[in-house]
């Protein structure tokens, strides 16, 4: 565990770099800018596709401003996750680390936790900034349940960071970023098609092949559903996020065990 924490610390220390400091300032600015945005809603007429994919009817509403903050956090996750390990390999830092009594698995987990922490800090700074800006403008705090719902968006960060980390074990930094972004974009399309196909009659016989393909892609629309909490949907969402994360990290670990680090 200490070894994992050591790698984690090594990853998080990057925050001290001016680029990351600037990133957090940007997070605070973005948070304050989006603080007065309305709750997310799709009408069945104008946005019928998104309306069909994302359920927003029950539970505390999802605020559009926090969705923007999440997207920025995901960009940070893709950027940090896809570049960290390839850069360590390029700079031979990984050889130094693995030369110590640190296993490749511990290195991978430490790196992943570090990347996720950077994203969480980014999100939390932006969210707090949004909360404070909202209070300054309206003299009212966000209702606790509404604020809590926005933080459940963070569940999307874990699999995205894991995907980026996994892909970074296969490719170089720039390639990994492109492949990760492409994979996530394809995920959105494939999972949307899968939900649509589920609504078609079973006799068309499209359901099974499309669903099998869709199982290879995480469905990020699930993270934007509104739900009552505590409830089975929230539980399923947490399990879904963790399961995806574990699967991607295990694939990354298998790759790490077999790849050449030079």
């Amino acid at each position: 565990m200490q070894k994992i924490l050591a790698v984690f610390e090594m990853t998080v220390k990057k925050v001290k770099e001016p680029a990351f400091s600037l990133l957090f300032v940007i997070a605070a600015v973005v948070g304050s800018c989006v603080s007065d945005m309305e709750s997310l809603s799709f009408s069945s007429q104008e946005n019928s596709l998104l309306f069909g994919l994302v359920s927003l009817e029950q539970g505390p509403p999802l605020l559009a401003g926090f969705v923007i903050i999440l997207f920025m956090s995901l960009i940070v996750a893709i950027f940090a996750g896809a570049t960290d390990i390839p850069k360590d390999i390029q700079s031979r830092m990984i050889v130094m680390v693995l030369g110590k009594p640190v296993s490749r698995m511990e290195y991978l987990i430490g790196k992943y936790l570090g990347i996720v922490s950077i994203c969480l800090v980014f999100f939390i700074i932006a969210a707090m900034s949004a909360g404070v800006a909202h209070y300054v403008k309206t003299q009212e705090f966000f209702p606790l349940s509404v604020f809590a719902r926005q933080f459940f968006l963070l569940l999307a960060v874990f699999p995205v960071a894991a995907v980026a980390t996994m892909i970074s074990t296969f490719f170089g930094d720039i390639s990994a970023m492109i492949v990760t972004a492409s994979y996530l974009f394809i995920s959105l399309i494939v999972t949307a098609v899968a939900v649509f196909v589920d609504m078609l009659p079973r006799s068309l016989g499209l359901g099974s092949p499309v669903n099998i393909i869709a199982y290879f892609f995480p469905n990020f629309f699930f993270f934007f559903n509104s739900f009552k909490f505590p409830g089975i949907v929230l539980g399923a969402l947490i399990v879904y996020s963790l399961a995806l994360t574990v699967i991607f990290l295990i694939i990354a670990a298998i790759r790490m065990q077999h790849r050449d680090m030079i």
Binding site: S48, S55, E57, F196, F222, A236, L242, I247
Partner: peptide, 29 residues
């Protein structure tokens, strides 16, 4: 992890597909 993934995915998909009182994606659209 795979078992958890398939189970949770099934629950979430059903939640989206059969949410009460609303028609999901309009086929006509």
């Amino acid at each position: 992890a795979f078992v958890a993934y398939f189970c949770s995915e099934a629950v979430l998909r059903q939640f989206v597909l059969h949410r009460a009182g609303t028609q999901s994606i309009s086929l006509d659209h």
